[in-house]
């Protein structure tokens, strides 16, 4: 097998042109799955006998929390690829992933707080999992702040990639935190290896939502990456042609 595809990925132009074809499919599929999942989860899934209707927030909360964690890995891996193979595009994806991941972490925290009020009687508890999610949020903000702090773009790329890699040290702790400092938060209900403790009638819409969130993430990440590519490559010929400018833009 040749590595040509891998090296092609390094070209922002190739990525931009390819994704123009994928985007509509990604967008349609993710919106479709999200629509089905939301209608199913919020409208048709049975009520929880203990928590009533308030449990339904898991259809947003759980996928957002999944993606918030996975997004950090995606960001860190892109940063590592950029540092190792000096791939321009990889850094762009890393930069694009940071604000999306931060937004998802915020959604997970916010929906958790909204759910916590009727269930635990308080919006915020300093429990291990909530706290580590908050720390994940700070990690995202740190990467974003550092990438924007450098005048030279390449330095910001590399520095924030390194910080993202260092931050991955904390991710296993976030996962393990439930076992380490078990306090108020209930243990994870979704288990890959054992039978889950959630009823199938609630589980299938949740899986639909998770799949929908993953596709939505891919869609938004591609969109954001494309806009960052245009910003970075605005001097090149192909971007000018794309924007219908043959001559350089007005001199500032």
């Amino acid at each position: 097998m040749s590595w040509q595809w891998f090296h092609r990925l390094g070209s922002p132009r190739w990525f931009y042109q390819k994704t123009s074809v994928w985007l509509p499919w990604l967008g349609t599929a993710s919106l479709l799955l999200l629509a089905v999942g939301i209608a199913w989860g919020l409208g048709f899934a049975p009520e929880d006998f203990k928590q009533g209707n308030s449990y339904r927030i898991i259809y947003i909360h759980v996928p957002a929390a999944f993606l918030a964690l996975a997004g950090y890995y995606i960001m860190a891996i892109c940063g590592a690829i950029g540092l190792i193979w000096k791939m321009k595009l990889s850094f762009v994806v890393m930069r694009a992933a940071a604000p999306i991941g931060a937004a998802l972490t915020f959604i997970a925290l916010f929906t958790g707080a909204v759910w916590g009020k009727p269930t635990w009687g308080t919006y915020w508890v300093w429990d291990a999992r909530i706290t580590s999610m908050l720390i994940l949020f700070f990690l995202y903000l740190g990467v974003m702040a550092l990438s924007g702090a450098f005048a030279r773009e390449q330095s910001g790329d590399k520095a924030s990639a390194l910080l993202a890699l260092v931050g991955t040290v904390n991710i296993p702790i976030i996962y393990k935190s439930v076992d380490w400092w078990f306090t108020l938060h209930q243990p994870a209900t979704l288990k890959l290896t054992e039978a889950s403790t959630i009823d199938p009638s609630m589980f299938y819409p949740l899986i639909t939502m998770i799949a929908g969130f993953y596709l939505f993430y891919a869609w938004v990440l591609t969109l954001h990456t494309r806009s960052l590519i245009l910003q970075r490559e605005w001097r090149t010929q192909w971007v000018r042609e794309l924007l219908g400018q043959s001559a350089p833009a007005a001199k500032v």
Partner: peptide, 19 residues
């Protein structure tokens, strides 16, 4: 990471505190 920046004080705290 921040040694090349002019005023790293708060940024340093932001990136290191979580760790």
């Amino acid at each position: 990471l921040t040694v090349a920046l002019r005023r790293p004080g708060l940024l340093l705290a932001l990136i290191i505190m979580p760790l």
